[in-house]
Design a protein around this nucleic acid. Structure first.
Lengths: 219, 219
DNA sequence: GAGCCCCTCCCCCGTGCGGCGGAGACGGAT
DNA sequence: ATCCGTCTCCGCCGCACGGGGGAGGGGCTC
């Protein structure tokens, strides 16, 4: 049963992460890391050129993020590779976007080496298992809730949107800070900006406004 | 690294399917089929008794179907096993129900032996991989449209509903007290009860829960 | 280079909020 | 007659929150 090795590309802007992933994956005889990328744009070109079987794609990357890179690859390649989106937190709203963009899998950075390797093998070899097109359908439907939007939506900066999304998950400022990997004071600033722009007085009203404006894809 | 074998229970009303699954799975040294069931009801009792690591659960079964059996197991067991729901068609609406019921995975009957084995190993060993809580969230949301209201809704008293509605209007406790013509302390009590019954931490989370449960008339 | 926006982070301060642990009154159930 | 659930209300406490008013750096445009 000697199959050709599974060819992998790693896309992550942090060298340490790439190194760690490479170390884990290269230890497996049936896995071969054929390329790396440090930005979303680079990921797209590297993947187009090398045509790997699986891509481990970080969400957070300079220039073009992992979601957009995934979108582009899935949309433009005849036979796109299986793309596994890697992130730190499972409740990240990125998840939905990742699935909608066409990601085949979703992996947490805190996964152990064993899980990582098995996940790679799994997505590489099969297309009929854990949540295949069904998930795509779910995510697509989720996204179809693209609502008309309220006036204030367009006035929010990128960071403010991030913060509002997390507010709408019921997180405290401290928790949001941890997830966004910034200081609590920063989150406070963004929250204040969100409250001002949404014309609300506290986080609860802001979340209500978000729901009613269809800002959240749930609505 | 000799780990204890992964203990499996197969639940399927067709003997042929069980035999086939058993043949495939038993060929692997690290997998052990410890029990079988032919109905949903039987699956529940067998699983409760044997406490396997993974259950392969057919959707279509006599008496109680696989979805309900999954629901019951996940809801009632302290440490429910990983339940992989098995079906024939991927666009089956069962998929959504399965995920919502708490299934850890979803497998198509046309999967080859290799995929089956790997899927079992994967769900057994890890809980942080391909589409974890995110899928659950998606499925839950999907279900909300079809079947509104959450379990906690019916448990709220009349007054608690009143208070929750006003909370969802973004009012403070003092404001709610004025509208309901009661003391602020009373509102606090009701709010506390609402938080307890909705399993939320603060009013923001409670409002989110209300929105997502379709508790509000306009949502 | 000046101006502007965005993101980051800091201080102080008042308070709304939620947890904890009560209590009295009413009404329906058995 | 007793019990239980509901609604009403109390005090105390700690903390997360939001307001006010900043500061510094990077990136953009003009």
């Amino acid at each position: 049963m000697t199959r050709p090795a599974i060819r992998l590309v790693l896309a992550d802007d942090e060298r340490m992460v790439r190194t760690a992933l490479r170390a884990i994956l290269s230890a497996e005889p049936d896995l071969e890391v054929v390329g790396e990328a440090t930005t979303g744009a680079e990921a797209v070109s590297v993947v187009r050129e090398l045509r790997p079987d699986v891509v481990l794609m970080d969400v957070r990357m300079p220039e073009v993020d992992g979601i957009r890179a995934t979108e582009q690859l899935v949309a433009t390649m005849a036979e796109p590779p299986r793309i596994v989106v890697v992130t730190t937190f499972e409740n990240d709203s990125y998840v939905y976007d990742a699935l909608r963009a066409g990601a085949a899998g979703f992996l947490l950075k805190r996964s152990d080496a064993d899980a990582l390797v098995q996940a790679v093998r799994l997505v590489a070899r099969t297309d009929s298992l854990l949540f295949p097109s069904a998930v795509r359908a779910l995510a697509a439907e989720h996204g179809r809730r693209a609502a008309p939007s309220a006036p204030w939506v367009s006035k929010l900066t990128g960071r403010e949107r991030d913060v509002l999304r997390h507010m709408a998950d019921g997180l405290t400022n401290a928790e949001i800070a941890r997830r966004l990997e910034v200081g609590p004071a920063t989150v406070k600033s963004h929250v204040a900006a969100v409250l001002a722009k949404t014309g609300t007085r506290d986080r609860t009203q802001a979340v209500i406004a978000a729901y009613e404006a269809g800002f959240l894809s749930v609505g």
